[in-house]
Amino acid sequence: MSDSILIQVDNGVATITLNRPQVFNSFNREMAFAMQDALDKCASNDEVRAVMIVGEGKAFCAGQDIQEITDPELNPGFKAILDDHYNPIVLKIRNLEKPVVAAVNGVAAGAGANIALCCDVVIATESAAFIQAFSKIGLIPDSAGTFFLPRLIGFGKASAAMMLADKITAPEADQMGMIYKAVPDADFLATAQKTAQKLAALPTVALANTKKALNQSYYNTVEEQLTLESKLQIESASTEDYAEGVASFMEKRKPVFNGK
């Protein structure tokens, strides 16, 4: 795997580190494919029960590496950048049957912001910021930003954020419901890691089914959603973790889930 993406598994949590700090972890073609590979490894590794994505250095991710698209010899073209680089990353995160925490340690701009916002839980350090930077260079938001952001903060605020390219601080993002929480810089990494560890210790199949239900809730009628909930609940109720959850409740003890 490219050293632009690092992956480490510890106590059920796979930490994926965006590792191009010299360019604020902006994506080039190599890094995009390495990120996809890392997500595939998380999907196939039964030891991984939760994923945390974080940036190395001062930024989470500044989006697309502009140097790549302004170099005629390196530029793959926007169709490849979207179809081959970013869109698969977003879909792999949303289809991963394990919870994904975005630990936003600094600025998240452009595609970097939208990759963070498509994750299941977003925790940011108070000094971080989110910027829909696309309009500054004559582009539209991609990486499913136009899908997720209006659903997170409403049409009006999303439209303004995208057109004006305002810098939204992490505390502001927390207040408007864009992210799960903003935490003081000194507590940030420990809080993000603790959250990922908590998710890794929960019933993995139930969390995956919750994610599936949330994904479909964007499209389904209430009747269709009720049908899906029934299907997924029956599936969840057949797991070892459900049996453990009930047993621990009856025995008044803390449950020990194995993710099965």
Results as ranks from 00 to 15, higher is better:
Ala113Ile: 00
Ala190Trp: 03
Ile69Asn: 01
Gly63His: 08
Leu199Cys: 09
Leu207Pro: 08
Pro21Asp: 09
Ala129Leu: 09
Phe155Arg: 14
Cys61Phe: 12
Ala243Pro: 00
Lys79Trp: 07
Ile234Gly: 04
Ser143Glu: 10
Tyr218Met: 11
Asn209Ala: 01
Ala14Cys: 10
Met176Val: 15
Asn95Tyr: 09
Thr195Ala: 12
Gln233Cys: 12
Arg151Gln: 13
Ala108Leu: 05
Gln36Trp: 05
Asn87Pro: 03
Ser44Glu: 14
Glu229Gly: 12
Thr210Val: 08
Asp83His: 10
Asn25Ala: 08
Glu251Pro: 05
Pro171Asp: 02
Gly156His: 11
Val121Leu: 11
Asp187His: 01
Leu189Val: 13
Asn25Glu: 05
Cys42Leu: 01
Leu149Ile: 15
Gly106Leu: 11
Gly156Val: 13
Val54Trp: 01
Asn114Ser: 04
Ala201Gly: 13
Leu39Asn: 00
Gln8Lys: 15
Asn45Arg: 02
Lys212His: 04
Leu228Gln: 12
Glu240Ile: 14
Ala62His: 11
Glu56Gly: 03
Ala186Trp: 00
Gly106Asn: 11
Gln36Ser: 12
Asn215Leu: 14
Leu152Ala: 10
Ala59Pro: 06
Asp185Met: 13
Glu126Thr: 12
Gly63Asp: 10
Leu6His: 04
Ala124Arg: 00
Met162Lys: 03
Met1Ala: 14
Ala111Trp: 01
Tyr86Phe: 15
Gly12Phe: 01
Asp40Pro: 00
Ala186Met: 04
Asp71Ala: 03
Leu207Phe: 07
Leu74Gln: 12
Pro76Asp: 05
Ser2Lys: 02
Pro203Cys: 10
Val256Gly: 01
Thr125Val: 07
Thr195Phe: 03
Pro255Lys: 06
Ala50Arg: 00
Asp142Cys: 12
Asp84Pro: 06
Thr221His: 03
Tyr242Met: 09
Ala133Thr: 14
Ala133His: 10
Pro21Gln: 08
Leu152Ser: 08
Met1Glu: 06
Asp40Ile: 08
Val222Cys: 09
Gly154Gln: 07
Ala50Ile: 02
Leu199Asp: 07
Leu232Tyr: 04
Thr239Lys: 07
Ala196Glu: 06
Met176Gly: 02
Leu207Asp: 05
Asn215Gln: 08
Leu164Gln: 13
Asp174Lys: 13
Gly63Ser: 08
Leu207Ile: 15
Ala103Leu: 01
Ala158Phe: 05
Gly55Met: 03
Asn28Met: 02
Asn114Gln: 04
Phe249Trp: 14
Gln175Ala: 15
